[in-house]
Design a protein around this nucleic acid. Structure first.
Lengths: 377, 377
DNA sequence: GACAATAAGTTCATGAATTGAACAAATCAA
DNA sequence: TTGATTTGTTCAATTCATGAACTTATTGTC
């Protein structure tokens, strides 16, 4: 276990990138003397290492960064079958991949992970020794200790202590997290929102997820439900949703909904790109669908901005393009529905991610727990 | 200035009420030995005092509580003319009231405060000595140091460093805050949400304000704009709003909007009660207005729940009743627009407040800064 | 090329916050 | 009255961080 100063240092470096001891001391409000000792410890632990030397006036400064090989993590996504499994280093780089069959039985899942681990680590003894945690991403609600799944419709779970079951079977520290929250953590730790303190990540895929960072920390909500924007009512008296309400964002703007609407209009549509192509050829139905979906997502994002004033909104998507009609309408709707004085003040960025998102997000949960430790509440 | 352990202790007591040294030590993760010293210091500072003695098995425990007369604060609301001004103790009790004329000139405001202070403190020399801060509530955006008003339409301000101007003129530590955020802080410090970590306060009055507490701390948003729900679009293509958009919550559900709608229908309406009375007599127009307003507010609150999963929503209102048609429809709409599985999970409480809300909120900002200190970012 | 100027990072005695262990104090229960 | 129990205090020991002096490694200048 690391001291709180050590954790603070790791967090600062993780947010700002490589820094010299002197800069670190200043930005943490500690003396150079203290920093000297803290960095020495972390370097000898193998977590930190010296990188570039910066020459200026006076003695050159040596930048310190997280040692990519300081620790390794396994991330598993329980969102697909077979379940993807990745081995990640401290920078979020993926070293190896595996898959394992998906099960709904937590004991079997633990068993399958225990079986798949050696394959993932095959001929990597040095890495195996530094394996510091397993992260699991799943669809559902997770308790604040990231140990137990409170509720998952997809997996049919209620109060399943998955983390401890896996820990018992594998002997490795394990943490679980909601899929969208895991993606947000991986963006904060490894991605493009490292230095942001307040932001929301919207994950756009078959479903729509969202997670908030507040004050540099993941805000999970009082019941772990913060960010569940998919079921906010966006169209009064809209289409019925499988959740029981009507007009949920999920019924209009998720990739699943878009595909279904396209199919209902007799359009062959396997991806957003297909529909965008149709729209650019002037197909009225395609244009209508994209317009409706984009407006809905934009309105939800506008609400997010009005309610929470995040410093940035990052939309991650597996689907190809976000610069077509859908993306444009989405941005316009977002701008049009925030207080005009503040329109454009909140950057909305889109970022294409690959099929490893969920598993990488899962790994980042383990990395986060290693780096920062459990939340001090 | 207090040490961080002293502040932590004050925060714990402020959240939980009177506690014994042993319980305090346990809940803060410190040793009894450390607690002995910390409490001794705070008692001799006059901030803490021993209250009830609890008898059980073993040596009785002595509960410690904030000393109500440990410090006093002045709160001023710049929302009305004349501006109300209160003197508050450590418990939020109002010791004295005054008013002062409202001005838009920060120098004149500081002057007026400096003049009004002696009147507020007249013949209370002991209190004057312990006056520990001035808080100001205003409509607009405030920077994160609670020192400068970034923007206020009502006052016509842009980047006005009001706090330092007042501090200079009066010699007393001064902090400013947005009106809705100040009310939320006073509820957290003095009111009914003391022990809640995550909650939102919706202040319902001529306008609608809102503020969020996340992890026990006020979340101000990246530009200080968190909680500005009044201008989220709630009715697609609704009535034009003075902000430039259409269908803002403010155009349908604020007391001002309700009164205007009633007037437009030829109804004599000076308060919510008037309209509720008409509605209960079967007046169709009154029923329509209350229904529309209640649905809108309920939908906004449902969004709040879906987006942020707060542990509680507290609606403060000056207007008389929230148990009539308006309140009922509001609650129904809120329930109907959250994920059905979670309907009813988030308590929505309403609380009538008196005309001192804003000034008391302002005082609580000063108290908060004394108690907890500035946020460590 | 020597030497000042400059800035990074280390060392070490000092001080502050906290702890563990022993102890004193104040009660209830038998 | 004695023992059990729990609160709260005292004090030497420990940990964490500091300030000041020092070492190290450069650039810039004469």
């Amino acid at each position: 276990m690391l001291t709180s100063s050590q954790q603070q240092l790791l967090r600062v470096i993780s947010e700002s990138g490589p820094l010299s001891r002197t800069v670190l001391a200043a930005s943490m409000g500690l003396s150079k003397a203290a920093m000297s000792g803290i960095t020495r410890d972390l370097i000898s632990l193998g977590v930190l290492h010296e990188t570039e030397t910066i020459y200026g006036q006076g003695r050159p400064s040596i930048l310190l960064d997280l040692h990519p090989e300081g620790a390794f993590f396994v991330g598993i996504s329980l969102l697909e079958d077979p379940a993807p499994m990745v081995l990640s280093d401290f920078n979020g780089n993926i070293i190896a991949r595996q898959t394992m069959p998906l099960s709904r039985d937590p004991e079997i899942i633990a068993e399958l992970i225990a079986e798949a681990l050696p394959k993932l680590l095959a001929e990597r003894e040095d890495i195996a020794r530094k394996l510091s945690g397993i992260g699991i991403a799943l669809s559902g609600f997770v308790d604040e200790k990231q140990a137990s799944c409170v509720q998952s419709t997809l997996l049919g779970w209620k109060d399943v202590p998955l983390a401890s079951i896996i820990r018992q079977k594998t002997g490795i520290d394990t943490f679980i997290e909601n899929d969208a929250k895991a993606v947000a953590v991986s963006e904060k730790l490894f991605g493009s929102t490292r230095d942001a303190q307040n932001f929301s990540v919207v994950s756009f895929d078959d479903g729509i997820g969202c997670a908030h960072f507040v004050g540099g920390k993941l805000y999970r909500g009082n019941h772990g439900g913060a960010g569940e924007i998919a079921h906010c009512t966006i169209e009064a008296n809209g289409s019925p949703c499988r959740c029981g309400k009507r007009g949920c964002l999920d019924t209009v703007a998720s990739m699943k909904a878009i595909k279904e609407m396209a199919r209902a209009e007799g359009l062959a549509c396997n991806s957003l790109n297909d529909l965008e192509a149709e729209a650019s050829l002037g197909n009225a139905a395609a244009i209508r669908i994209l317009h409706r979906a984009g407006s809905a997502l934009g309105l939800a994002i506008a609400h997010l901005i009005q309610f929470n004033d995040p410093g940035m909104i990052l939309i991650t998507h597996v689907e190809g393009r976000f610069d077509g009609l859908f993306g444009t309408v989405m941005r316009q709707a977002a701008e049009a529905n925030v207080l005009p004085r503040y329109a454009g003040q909140t950057p909305i960025r889109t970022q294409r991610v690959d099929g490893d998102v969920w598993a990488r997000g899962a790994a980042s949960i383990a990395a986060h727990n290693f780096l920062i430790g459990p939340s001090p509440n």
